[in-house]
């Protein structure tokens, strides 16, 4: 634990990293699936799905957080059944994961969808004529070709999750050590007199993490793209 951060500050940073990582990892498979559906398939209700995915991007975050509370709160229409199974999301760090995942989802899907649309379906057809069944075509041709898009989508989602504030504070509140993420902590420090130095340290951490994520994703997607293009 670095001593230039107080335990509370450190907990906020650690929690944010954990929440963002889980939010990214858990939503990635669904993100890929939805990106494929939107890029490749024609189905009834496609525009509805597209709208739903993008809703968190355009709604005020506090509205998304409130809708999450209505849905996944202990009395919510999904939450009450989860509660029976002993799963509680509201006011828990797992709820923060859900809020972050929902808010980051449109960014992830958009990035992956673009890369799926860029894949030449004729190359996939060629793979099938060479004897590859559809799951193998996906694993050996499609997935490697969309990897840059997946990396970009995942990093964008991670960065968005790190910065998510409105929906998180509405759905899981701002409990130090439990649901107090980095932005919530900055907000809390700014609410008390003399909290500016702490807030500023966390702002620096926030900038550092965001920049690191961005540089890492640029480097990774370039490395993968170079492998694909053979340049």
């Amino acid at each position: 634990m670095p001593d230039w951060l107080s335990p509370d500050e450190w907990r906020a940073v650690a929690l944010s990293l954990r929440v963002s990582l889980w939010a990214t990892v858990l939503s990635l498979p669904l993100g890929i699936l939805v990106a494929f559906a939107l890029a490749r398939r024609q189905f009834w209700g496609k525009q509805v799905l597209n709208g739903l995915v993008h809703l968190p991007l355009i709604l005020p975050p506090v509205v998304t957080g409130y809708l999450l509370l209505l849905t996944f709160g202990r009395k919510g229409f999904v939450g009450q059944y989860l509660d029976m199974m002993g799963v509680v999301l509201a006011f828990q760090w797992t709820g923060a994961v859900l809020a972050a995942a929902v808010m980051a989802f449109p960014l992830m899907v958009r990035a992956i969808r673009l890369s799926v649309e860029a894949v030449d379906a004729k190359v996939e057809q060629a793979a099938s004529t060479l004897g590859a069944a559809p799951p193998w075509v996906f694993a050996t041709v499609t997935l490697p070709l969309i990897l840059p898009g997946i990396i970009v989508g995942a990093v964008l989602a991670f960065a968005k999750a790190m910065g998510e504030f409105g929906a998180t504070i509405t759905f899981v509140a701002n409990i130090p050590g439990q649901t107090q993420t980095l932005p919530s902590a900055i907000y809390a420090f700014l609410q008390v007199p003399g909290g500016d130095p702490q807030a500023f340290r966390l702002v620096l951490v926030s900038i550092f993490v965001a920049m690191a994520a961005l540089v890492l994703s640029e480097w990774a997607s370039k490395a993968v793209a170079r492998r694909i293009s053979g340049a």
């Binding site: 030449d120 190359v123 060629a126 004529t129 004897g131 590859a132 069944a133 694909i228 293009s229």
Partner: peptide, 20 residues
């Protein structure tokens, strides 16, 4: 039969090689 079970080796006008 789906393409992968037909065992027809195809060569197209565009080569369709795997770029990766």
């Amino acid at each position: 039969l789906p393409p992968h079970r037909r065992r027809i080796g195809c060569v197209f006008q565009d080569d369709r090689l795997f770029p990766h």
